[in-house]
């Protein structure tokens, strides 16, 4: 029952291009996992398949024993790498929308985080800067009581101070049974909060191991190892 996510011989092809090549892995509950890889290594493709936004060419993904679908979407809270919120609504209206949409959405948590980041709930989304809008999106995603949070580049567009706050939010706001899969290039910023990392290279997993394992076995940081594995 500890297997939260199971990926079996997953392959995705875009025409002639193989984006993911026969991936096999499992994620357990209660972990924070970094999904790391250079541009075009298949991170977002993998995430989109897990979230049901893309169909795999072959292979399967099981979430808590269910195939990707209504049941899996109930337990996954997904932050895409692009903005998906409309411009017309205010922050407050967007929260109401999420309340209607997700039964596990915790409104108090959302308002609490907005307050801490100094974001006015009555502000219209179109008046917010890109970074602030990203913060709002992350708050919405982290305010659900999900079992698996999938964050695609959650901190790329925000300033370092807010980055610290966001990472802290991630650490303090997920409960022990939930797992978080974070895809990012900003390894040195996130590596201290990770349990495990998956290194993706040209659609294949080249490493899947604990971060303290890397530090004690290789005497380098995850960032250092990444630079070595993906040396151009």
């Amino acid at each position: 029952m500890s297997s939260l996510l199971e990926v079996n011989s997953l392959t995705k092809k875009y025409g002639n291009l193989t984006a993911l090549n026969n991936l096999n892995f499992e994620l357990e509950s209660g972990h924070i996992i970094g999904l790391l890889g250079p541009n075009g290594s298949g991170k977002t493709t993998l995430i989109k398949i897990i979230c049901g936004l893309l169909q795999p060419t072959s292979g399967s993904v099981m979430v808590e024993g269910n195939p990707v679908g209504v049941e899996s979407k109930k337990v996954i809270s997904y932050l895409p790498d692009t903005t998906y919120l409309g411009n017309a609504a205010s922050v407050q209206e967007t929260i109401d929308f999420f309340m209607d949409f997700y039964e596990d959405f915790d409104q108090d948590r959302a308002y609490d985080m907005l307050g801490k980041l100094g974001i006015d709930p009555s502000a219209h989304l179109r008046t917010l800067s890109k970074g602030t809008r990203e913060k709002v999106q992350l708050i919405l995603v982290m305010s659900r009581r999900a079992d698996l949070y999938i964050l695609d580049e959650p901190i790329a567009g925000v300033d370092p101070a807010a980055r610290d706050y966001i990472l802290n939010t991630i650490i303090t706001n997920y409960d022990e049974k939930a797992s978080i899969l974070i895809s990012t290039h900003l390894i040195s910023d996130v590596e201290n909060i990770l349990d495990e990392v998956i290194f993706l290279k040209q659609g294949e997993i080249v490493r899947f191991c604990g971060v303290d394992e890397i530090r004690s076995n290789e005497g380098k940081s995850v960032d250092g190892l990444f630079r070595e594995v993906f040396k151009c």
Binding site: G30, H31, I32, N168, I171, T172, N192, I193, D195
Partner: peptide, 14 residues
């Protein structure tokens, strides 16, 4: 654990 993890900015499991 949670308070300390947040203070140290590390993963609660660690």
């Amino acid at each position: 654990v949670r308070e300390l993890a947040s203070e140290a900015a590390v993963n609660p499991n660690t």
